[in-house]
């Protein structure tokens, strides 16, 4: 007889908001590369959920949220330039090598990588960053984006190719 919880309940909604805020905000950020835009997207998406609270199944609300972010992104900000930056303290890959030449090459590598990531198609970038930064498994990403795991794999391969890893796949 237990009724499934309903997001029109203020307390439940607040809990839902705070639980999903960070992940959803990063999710939007990977897509559009700007923290103010990602927050806008997020607030609008939460607002959509609030508007339709009665018709949304609580258990599916999370995936609804992420899907909404995706849709709103397509409607609103997909045309803009994407820019990424590193955290203030970014340790080099080889922490022990301090030769000027190495430091210079690493700096160059980092900048190239940022540019290449920014240049990826939004979906590829999002999947790549969700996997690399947030350690999300392909299965989880597929769930979030409402796509198949195979599609995630495909996007990931494309992303790695576009980032021009020295790694050459097969052949």
């Amino acid at each position: 007889m237990s009724k499934s919880p309903n997001l029109c309940d203020e307390i439940l909604f607040e809990k839902f908001y705070k639980q999903n805020f960070k992940a959803a905000n990063n999710f939007a950020f990977y897509k559009c590369g700007s923290s103010s835009d990602s927050l806008d997207l997020l607030q609008d998406s939460f607002a959509k959920i609030w508007e339709n609270c009665a018709s949304i199944n609580y258990l599916k609300a999370k995936s609804y949220l992420f899907t909404t972010i995706n849709h709103l992104f397509l409607n609103k900000v997909k045309h803009q330039n994407v820019v990424f930056a590193y955290q203030k303290e970014t340790p080099n890959y080889d922490k022990d090598n301090h030769s000027p030449e190495y430091l210079y090459l690493e700096e160059e590598y980092k900048q190239q990588l940022l540019t290449k990531i920014a240049a990826l198609p939004a979906q590829q970038r999002q999947i790549f960053l969700l996997n690399r930064i947030e350690n999300k498994k392909y299965r989880e990403i597929a769930e979030l984006l409402n796509i198949s795991q195979k599609t995630v794999e495909k996007h990931m391969s494309e992303a790695l190719k576009n980032l021009q890893l020295k790694t050459k796949f097969s052949k």
Binding site: Y17, K18, K22, F29, S38, L39, A85, F128, L129, R132
Partner: peptide, 29 residues
Amino acid sequence: ELEALKKLSHYTTHINVPKENSEEAFQNF
């Protein structure tokens, strides 16, 4: 190739992600 992959991963994880705080954002919301 493994090294190249690891290096790519290493620098990707250090990309600056937003630091908005959920309490504040919720107040605005």
